[in-house]
Nucleic acid binder design. Structure first.
Lengths: 196, 196
DNA sequence: CCTACCGATCGGTAGG
DNA sequence: CCTACCGATCGGTAGG
């Protein structure tokens, strides 16, 4: 077996094309909605012919599912990286908020925005998504609980986590990179509403 | 011209059927998305044949536009009714929040949820929607400005109105009528995050 | 991954 | 508002 410098053509190339499809599919699903995006749109966006996406994915729904799961997992890793080593829960919350805004507005996967399209999936796929999504939620609940116990939350009333997610996720509806607000400023504003 | 007790068959019946179409279309668009809802779905939901919705509306997009505009206008009236006569801006804000939650979660039009589908409309239609939507936003800004001047807001930082709308609109993603939280409780929690 | 294609479905229309 | 229909498009497949 000769040492071959290049990645083995077949497998590595396939993996790259798969990623291309996922990235463009995510972008189009967010932009136009799942139902209004055709598999031909996606193929064209990566320079393939209309039938070729089905070499990589069994169906259009499979593409949506994979885009959501891989997007959520990347977001989860980013959230962990941003909060690791921050012992003070208030500081950690602020860092998590900033990381979540990054996941929503800076990346190319837009994972949390894809969650709107969960309705387009069948029940088993929905369950898979829910499992990945729950881990993400759990990280937040842990930090919020710590803050509540320490009496550092402005209100420990029930739906605090959900209200926070609302504030943050809704930014996808109005945030513009060239607008007057930076992600840091938005993160500060959101954090200051929660913290006592 | 004889006094006829019944509403004149033609016009009144047409108007009723039009409303039926708008209501069911709004429900389906929210449930499945605009792209994934067929005009046949909508026709079937009101007991018509596949071609008949086009007697009332020129196109599927026209149906979406009308559902959004009429839903927004109904919501606007409800918001006005709820806040009329409340001189204290804090009290008024709390009433507006409750009314907005009602618009989102109690009515049958789900107008604010339809706003997600603005992307499915062409530019002129988008402009029409924006005009109606701006009036709605203006009512909030007025009350928030009053509170800011009086120093009764927890933070007068820029995106407060947008963060508030995020909290409220996101409830459509998690609120369940049989869940542990009433709309009044949610309204209280949201208002208490904003008010000093 | 392309070519060539299929069956199904879709938005919309004509004519009554 | 129904009947009957059309052209276009869509998700997906077979065979290479």
């Amino acid at each position: 077996m000769p040492a071959d410098r290049k990645p083995r053509q077949g497998l590595a190339a396939d993996a790259n094309r798969r990623e291309d499809l996922l990235r463009e599919a995510a972008r189009l699903f967010v932009e136009k909605g799942f139902g209004a995006t055709t598999t031909r749109d996606i193929a064209e966006a990566v320079g393939m012919r209309s039938g070729s996406p089905f070499y990589h994915f069994r169906s259009k729904q499979e593409l949506l599912k994979a885009a959501m799961i891989e997007g959520l997992e990347a977001g989860y890793r980013r959230l962990q990286a941003a909060s690791a080593g921050l012992a003070d829960p208030a500081q950690r919350l602020r860092a998590m908020i900033r990381a979540h805004l990054g996941n929503l507005l800076e990346g190319s996967c837009h994972a949390p925005m894809l969650l709107y399209e969960t309705r387009s999936l069948d029940a088993p796929a929905r369950a898979e998504i829910a499992a990945v999504s729950d881990r993400y939620q759990q990280m937040w609940q842990t930090t919020l609980d710590e803050l509540a116990v320490a009496g550092r939350l402005r209100s420990s009333a029930g739906p605090l986590r959900l209200l926070l997610f609302g504030m943050l996720n809704w930014t996808t509806q109005w945030y513009r990179p060239d607008g007057g607000l930076s992600l840091d400023e938005i993160a500060d504003a959101a954090a200051s509403l929660l913290l006592a």
